[in-house]
Design a protein around this nucleic acid. Structure first.
Lengths: 233, 233
DNA sequence: CAGTGGTCTAGACCACGAT
DNA sequence: TCGTGGTCTAGACCACTGA
């Protein structure tokens, strides 16, 4: 009679989405419970669970024990951003990657950075500044503080040849992190490095990663004027 | 002897992460297969599968049939951004939300917009421009084209009272979308609306949502100078 | 209290893909 | 080819939470 059997979790998901889309199930309304749906679709409850749980993770459904499952009132869009190694990002675009170390020093970080990294404000940290290039053009400035007390080998790492960005990802596992995106006007120095005009709008990423409670590293990335970060929704 | 039993998927996940973290399993190296781990942990293979599958979705592991499971060489950070209704975003910060419709018209979109929305370039679309305010201060400019042929009721929607942002999320379900983030210098007009200086760097979001193959709406959001978009990693 | 989702189990079959 | 992960099933117990 009708189409294919609904006996795998993706088919269940598609059917649920279809009903939401056709307004058979409207935003805010409850949908049948897992057991009933399983019976209707002729599959196991675990299969329905997998489908509905995934939809809930994507913000399409609201699920609560005892209260049941409802269609989300405002389907919160979830955009998943991949934060790759910069070299891979460039190479994935088919461009030639290059890298130049600009600065490396032990220094006392500014007070705001100490707060962000939750380290004492009277100790030196390892500071690294570098320029990443794509197709011989400036791509992004990496400006980084590293808590070398927590990262074995950081003081000996060959940052002249491999970016801290890449070295740390392979050598300093983190448990969690915080990231923020914003826009900043280029300083004269940044403009010079990035082949931009002073005051050009730059896409700006700040990222701090932690190993349990202690910060490993904090980095700011200033992308060249015109950079766009894309993803699916 | 040792700690707690490892008989739920989160415990398995924690144990796996612990081993990766302690370098018992190093980046690029294979780890035991699901059956062996299940036996070692004393739980079902499905439990191990759930744990490892979740870690793979987070970019911590690489899994391939037959090849087995390996610790990811470069743990690709996955930042999940919530894209909420602007009103909710403002209210969640404890600020008073306000909204002002600036413009509403039928007009022919620019060629670039037609390409982006994949509509014929000789037809009018509904254009809406509005300002969102937080704590009485300008927050973001919403600049939107709506494919009213595909959104029932769009022409009659009360955009003077409810933002297109919010109305569409509740009334126009989408199947997928595309989003990009960048930085732009404020035009004089934007600067005036956002209480900024001309040329100030603005955080800029472009988003186009689709219903299957046809575009529903395309919006650009120009956030006030200093806006930061934050998330966990 | 009782209904719902959350999870675990033991077993099974299958699709993919490295060798 | 055949080992590995991907998935389904039927049943069970549990945790949370609304009424």
């Amino acid at each position: 009679m009708s189409g294919q059997a609904i006996n795998n979790w993706q088919a269940v998901q598609d059917e649920v989405l279809r009903r939401i889309h056709r307004r058979e199930w409207k935003p805010g309304e409850p949908i049948p419970n897992e057991a009933d749906l399983a019976q209707e679709f002729g599959c196991a409850r675990a299969t329905v669970n997998r489908a509905l749980r995934t939809l809930a993770e994507n913000g399409i459904l609201d699920r609560r024990r005892k209260a049941g499952t409802r269609v989300a009132l405002h389907p919160v869009g979830k955009a998943t951003l991949d934060i790759p190694v910069i070299r891979h990002e460039v190479e994935a675009k088919g461009m030639c990657y290059d890298y130049r170390l600009l600065d490396r020093a032990m220094a006392r970080p500014p007070a705001q950075m100490c707060r962000q990294m939750q380290v004492a404000d009277d100790s030196d940290l390892l500071y690294v500044r570098a320029l990443h290039l794509a197709a011989r053009a400036p791509y992004v400035i990496e400006d980084r503080w590293i808590n070398h007390h927590k990262v074995a080998g950081a003081l000996d790492a060959p940052f002249a040849e491999i970016s801290a960005n890449e070295w740390l990802l392979a050598n300093a596992p983190y448990t969690h992190g915080q990231i923020s995106f914003s826009a900043r006007n280029a300083t004269p120095e940044e403009a010079a490095l990035l082949n931009a005009r002073p005051n050009d709008a730059l896409f700006w990423i700040e990222r701090t990663t932690f190993d349990h409670e202690t910060a490993i590293t904090s980095v700011t990335l200033s992308y060249a004027h015109g950079y766009r970060m894309n993803t699916e929704l």
